Amino acid sequence: MKLLKTRIDGPKIIKTEIFRDSRGFLKETYRKNIVNKKEFPFDVMSFSKKNVLRGLHIQTKKPQAKIITVTYGKIFDVAVDLRKNSKSFGKYVGITISDKDNFSFYIPEGFAHGFLCLSKECTVNYKCSQYRVPESEKTLSWDDPDVNIKWLIKKPILSDKDKNLGLSLNEFYNLK
C-alpha cells in the first residue's frame, strides 16, 4: 500500500494490491501507518442509483478527513479545496473509482466531498476521522460555475438539501 499525489496538495490515491483467486479477491483499504497515522473512528456506507449525485459536503467544525472506497459499482468522486488560505482554494480533484480498482481516495480535512453514481447502482464506504456534527455541515453547490466541476451529466438526481441549500464558493469563503 502506498500514497500517490493528485494535482492538488492534500488529496491522495491510496494504491493497494488486490489478491485474486477463483473465490474472488481480497484488498486492504486502510493502514494507519500509511495514511498520516490518522485515527478514523467513524465509518459510513451509502447506496445510490445511477445519476444520483451526493454532495458537495463539508463539516466546518470538527472537519473530517475521509477515505473513500467503492465496494460495488462505479462513481465519479470529487474533492474541492475549501481551505481558505490554500493556493488551490476552489479547485477540485475528480477521479473515477469502481469496485474493480486497486485504490481508494484519501481526502484531507478542509475539502468538500461529493460523488456521482455512474453505474446502475453503487455502494460507497467512507472512513471518517471525526464523528458527524450535523449543525456544522455545509453544502457547496454542485454546479457552482466558479468551481466548474465536469460532472459527466447535466441533470443529476439530488436530495432536497443538495438541491436547495448549496452555497456558492464566494458564500462559503465569507462564512464566519
Results as ranks from 00 to 15, higher is better:
47 F>K: 14
88 S>Q: 10
165 L>N: 14
109 E>M: 13
3 L>H: 04
127 K>V: 02
142 W>T: 09
78 V>H: 09
46 S>L: 08
147 V>C: 05
103 F>P: 02
111 F>D: 14
145 P>H: 00
127 K>I: 01
81 D>I: 03
153 I>F: 10
125 N>I: 13
62 K>D: 13
1 M>R: 00
23 R>M: 07
170 N>L: 07
91 K>H: 10
65 A>H: 07
118 L>K: 04
14 I>V: 13
1 M>N: 06
3 L>D: 05
19 F>G: 00
105 F>A: 03
146 D>T: 04
75 I>T: 05
69 T>F: 02
167 L>M: 14
64 Q>I: 12
173 Y>H: 11
38 K>I: 13
131 Y>L: 13
82 L>Q: 11
142 W>N: 09
112 A>R: 14
123 T>V: 15
121 E>H: 13
101 D>E: 07
94 G>W: 04
67 I>A: 02
17 E>V: 11
3 L>V: 08
159 S>R: 11
68 I>P: 04
49 K>Y: 12
86 S>N: 11
113 H>G: 09
56 L>I: 08
120 K>E: 15
27 K>Y: 08
59 Q>S: 10
126 Y>H: 05
106 Y>N: 12
157 I>H: 08
40 F>I: 03
116 L>V: 12
79 A>H: 11
131 Y>M: 12
164 N>L: 14
75 I>H: 03
120 K>R: 15
108 P>K: 12
13 I>T: 04
150 K>Y: 10
12 K>I: 00
48 S>V: 05
36 N>P: 01
146 D>W: 00
66 K>G: 04
108 P>Q: 06
53 L>S: 03
81 D>K: 09
128 C>S: 09
119 S>V: 04
136 S>L: 08
18 I>H: 06
65 A>M: 05
74 K>G: 01
82 L>N: 11
87 K>C: 00
119 S>E: 09
82 L>M: 14
71 T>D: 00
109 E>Q: 15
176 K>S: 10
113 H>D: 13
176 K>H: 06
36 N>M: 08
164 N>D: 14
98 S>F: 03
19 F>H: 14
21 D>K: 06
113 H>T: 11
1 M>V: 08
4 L>C: 01
47 F>P: 00
141 S>A: 10
133 V>Y: 15
75 I>Q: 03
140 L>Y: 12
133 V>E: 15
48 S>C: 09
75 I>D: 02
115 F>C: 10
118 L>Y: 02
19 F>M: 07
33 N>T: 15
96 T>H: 08
5 K>G: 00
